[in-house]
Write a protein that binds this DNA or RNA. Structure first.
Lengths: 332, 332
DNA sequence: ACAGGAATTGTTAACGTTAACAATATTATA
DNA sequence: TATAATATTGTTAACGTTAACAATTCCTGT
């Protein structure tokens, strides 16, 4: 459709190879011919055909950013922050293709000719099949947010268990002993990591673990609301609740308020993720900051390194979380 | 790198064209040879080389989804909903490339060979240059969220002015007369549309327009907080505030609470967008639902139609907004 | 058994680019 | 001034696929 190097060649009365050389800063070309060709190319608004380039160079210029799911359970902030982090690094050097793993019925179309590299923001166990497929095709791969012991895969993780632990420690330091947990969505690794931190803190502090204090959820606000309602109906209402993410914390606060009690006066609430809205909600939500953007930036950076030929070595990098103290926790 | 049709051809002892025919459901092939070839292809895990296909078919299989900016002022929900809407339609039929217009320094690399079609979620006036460039290259184009009178462009809009108007009408019906507006980010069309609705309602209801009741903002929570503080310092504090989006409303609520007043008892607050958190915030936020997902779904659908060869005709489609009544507004 | 047509297969070129190598022009060196 | 070395340019093939057209095979009806 557009204008090609052959047409430019004709106009400049040179071979198309010479045009290619001019366009690609080859050292094997006379400066004057080069200038002349460049001038013509510019005048004609020449744009290289990327498909042809891709074919001959065996490079698609595509980077796939895969989420476990785009629409079913991924929070907006999480999604947005991830993309910002990646985008900041790749800018227009590569095309960023955003996909949901759950939109793939089979993985047969995965291929080196489609992706120069892949970043997986993994939230669910069942991503495994997908991950192995990518590794098998030996497409350069960075896995965010999920442990993997594949060689030649860069693995970037938030220190989630430590984060949950720090939240719980903070509650204990404030004198809480009756501490419940609102759990995340089943099948998400973060769900178990955060719960592990909860366990560890209780055990280390010799606090009794009570099954009725552990209630299921699925990371959305509604499930936090419902979960808190259950806790409020217990004969022994907890004095503090660790919510597996901020959305659930918001739902929990809502439920507490509806019951006539107050946060944090009657019940302390702590969240996880440090979503944008935390500091503006009433009371401002104490939470654990998950460094999503930092993780995806770091991941994208590593992928760039791999694509530029630096040695590909498996590596596991932990990005620290941070306890953000606001107003939703106080002494019981 | 991978396995090609020529290798399959060799194994099946046919020409590569025959293999191509088998793979593409051509009618000009014997069923048995076809089965045989397909079997071999499957066994070898053949994946077509998309770059080669793209080159010969002049089709990139890429759809570009462009935001005015990805990281500077686009809210997470907005961003997420847009992508969900588009993704629901295109699934794996096309690759979804997400880009920020502000990441482009010049638009010269835009080209039919890179994008089969483009969807622009336009939030800012300065997208114009970009839009014209795309139209000039006659790449099939759908513009979301911004008026354009280019022919051959499908234009999908939320009825924003009407939405703001309905919000204001609701405030007036509740007996408010001292109604302020916290404005959106400068340069965004939505900012002026929403303000227009505000004006229209005031005028129709013969309410005096006071300059000190119109305070600037930039769609983030902080600016809502700061803006509300200004209003609270006025000698004549308004009884209701129309916030140009929900984020700003959250900031405004925060400021009201900090000043010792209450929402809605002392000041009514109304938002715009119907972000996910609205119903869980205290008090639950009355707002205008902007049908982002519906808009982008509709837009993607239209683009698909265009790409499948249906006539390309310029069209303007309005998706209605809806007033969502919750708890943040009451009579003064 | 053979012409004529349909069904199936093969040959070749094309898409737009880069790269290996060959050819030519230019300069430096003796 | 001839010659080697170097700089510049051109020729051709290649990337993996589809498509136009040519060639072949297989039937059908007589």
């Amino acid at each position: 459709m557009g204008i090609t190097i052959k047409e430019i060649a004709k106009m400049a009365k040179v071979s198309h190879t010479t045009v290619s050389r001019a366009l690609n800063d080859s050292p094997f070309i006379n400066q004057e011919t080069k200038d002349r060709i460049l001038e013509i190319a510019k005048r004609l608004n020449y744009v290289p055909n990327f498909n042809a380039k891709s074919l001959v160079l065996q490079k698609s210029h595509n980077i796939g950013l895969f989420f476990s799911t785009i629409s079913k359970g991924t929070s907006s902030t999480f999604f947005h922050e991830t993309i910002i982090g990646v985008n900041n690094v790749i800018k227009n050097k590569y095309n960023l293709l955003v996909q949901g793993i759950d939109d793939y019925s089979d993985y047969s179309s995965l291929d080196n000719s489609r992706f120069d590299g892949i970043i997986i923001m993994s939230q669910m166990d069942r991503d495994n099949a997908f991950i192995y497929k990518v590794a098998e095709k030996s497409i350069p791969l960075v896995i965010l947010n999920r442990e993997s012991n594949l060689d030649s895969v860069v693995n970037i993780l938030a220190a989630e268990k430590a984060g949950a632990y720090s939240a719980l420690k903070y509650l204990v330091q404030n004198g809480h002993k009756d501490i419940a947990i609102l759990e995340g969505k089943e099948g998400f690794i973060s769900t178990v990591n955060r719960k592990d931190g909860y366990f560890q803190a209780l055990i280390e502090n010799k606090i009794e673990i009570r099954p009725e204090y552990m209630v299921g959820g699925n990371y959305d606000i509604e499930s936090g609301y419902q979960g808190m309602k259950k806790l409020l109906n217990l004969p022994n209402v907890p004095t503090a609740v660790f919510c597996s993410n901020d959305n659930m914390a918001v739902g929990a606060v809502k439920a507490v308020h509806e019951s006539g009690l107050k946060v944090p006066e009657n019940i302390s609430i702590i969240g996880f993720d440090n979503s944008e809205f935390c500091k503006y909600v009433t009371p401002a939500l104490t939470t654990v900051k998950k460094p999503i953007r930092e993780m995806s930036t770091e991941g994208a950076q590593r992928l760039m390194d791999m694509l530029e030929g630096h040695a590909i070595k498996g590596e596991r990098i932990y990005i620290p979380t941070e306890l953000i103290i606001r107003e939703s926790v106080t002494c019981p």
